[in-house]
């Protein structure tokens, strides 16, 4: 995650197979030190950037693009995992991908970063991870921040920092781990404590549905969570609108929001890539990974299933416990 990584990425992108029409990579945002996902032509390699602030997941963009193009993609472990999942679900064909895998040491939590860095964001020239320090440079000055102070918490539990499936890999492979200690800790609380915790969390949710919108696994055209997919015109009478089928309450209150979130994560069982986009996107900064990780734990422990298996979780029926 330093200048050298970026050089390696560029080098690989310069010698891509000729049939590749796009590169989905990271480009630095204007007047901010972070990168965003961008679609580039193979002759725009110089625009590429990469740093510990390249936290977004390109899988969703790739899914759209790879329908009728061959695409090269720069993928961290979790990005590759999302791509793999989309491939399993026949949303992407592997032949259309050229994966430049990055062995990932973790990314920075931008919220923590903004609170820690002493420079104005627009002044920052570079952010690099060197050893276990984040080195921020701005106008000849330098600030060193221990990585542990600004790391995105989700990355501490990363299962697959190194992509399993890639065409080229940059960096030395890293070991992932299956660690649910945070979830186990939470489960020790009493039911009442857990309930008030989640009621407090979800009373803050404003139901903007950003967490669904960014998730690479939430690609359905029609989502159960939308108030109604049926046409409403100014002429539709109120009684008719009221009679439209709806499963989820439209009101924004803690209980309806909780139901929304339970439904959302249930749809990710055995599929979630663990990228943390949902949590990053949330304007209310809610701990969304916690609910998702509980589900991951159930999938591992009760069904003995790993999202990395070739057969999708939904189609596997021989993994039910007895009874």
């Amino acid at each position: 995650m330093n200048a050298e990584t970026l050089e390696r990425i560029k080098e690989e992108c310069r010698k891509l197979p000729a049939e590749i029409s796009y590169i989905v990579g990271f480009v630095r945002k204007q007047s901010e030190p972070r990168e965003v996902v961008a679609v580039l032509k193979p002759d725009e390699v110089d625009k590429l950037s990469f740093s510990p602030l390249s936290f977004n997941n390109p899988a969703r963009t790739v899914m759209e693009l790879a329908k009728d193009n061959k695409v090269a993609v720069i993928a961290k472990g979790c990005d590759a995992r999302a791509l793999k999942q989309l491939e399993k679900e026949e949303k992407i064909e592997r032949e259309n991908l050229y994966i430049i895998g990055i062995s990932c040491p973790g990314v920075i939590d931008y919220r923590k970063f903004r609170n820690t860095v002493k420079f104005r964001l627009a002044e920052i020239d570079s952010v690099e991870l060197i050893g276990d320090e984040v080195v921020v440079k701005a106008g000849g000055e330098e600030q060193r921040i221990p990585f542990s102070e600004v790391i995105f918490e989700n990355c501490l539990y990363c299962e697959q920092p190194t992509p399993k499936d890639y065409d080229v890999l940059i960096g030395e492979p890293r070991e992932g781990k299956v660690d649910f200690s945070d979830i186990e800790e939470f489960e020790k609380l009493s039911a009442e404590e857990r309930w008030s915790y989640w009621m407090d969390v979800f009373s803050k949710c404003i139901r903007c549905h950003a967490c669904r919108q960014v998730c690479p696994m939430c690609y359905c055209n029609e989502c159960l969570v939308d108030p109604s997919n049926l046409a409403v015109s100014p002429m539709t009478p109120a009684e008719e609108k009221a009679a439209y089928p709806r499963v989820l309450g439209r009101t924004v209150n803690a209980a309806d929001n909780l139901i929304y979130h339970i439904v959302r994560v249930m749809h990710h069982a055995g599929r979630c890539a663990g990228c943390g986009e949902c949590e990053r996107a949330c304007p209310m900064e809610l701990p969304l990974r916690k609910l998702e990780r509980k589900l991951e734990k159930v999938v591992y422990e009760v069904f003995n299933y790993s999202p990395d298996e070739e057969i999708p979780f939904l189609s596997k029926l021989d993994i039910l416990p007895e009874g």
């Binding site: 489960e187 009493s190 404590e193 857990r194 309930w195 339970i262 589900l295 069904f303 029926l317 039910l320």
Partner: peptide
């Protein structure tokens, strides 16, 4: 079998949220 799979997932989540 699908019913049972979903049942287990939902029950575990319900328990988790208290």
């Amino acid at each position: 079998y699908y019913a049972k799979k979903r049942y287990i997932l939902l029950k575990e989540l319900l328990k988790f949220v208290g």
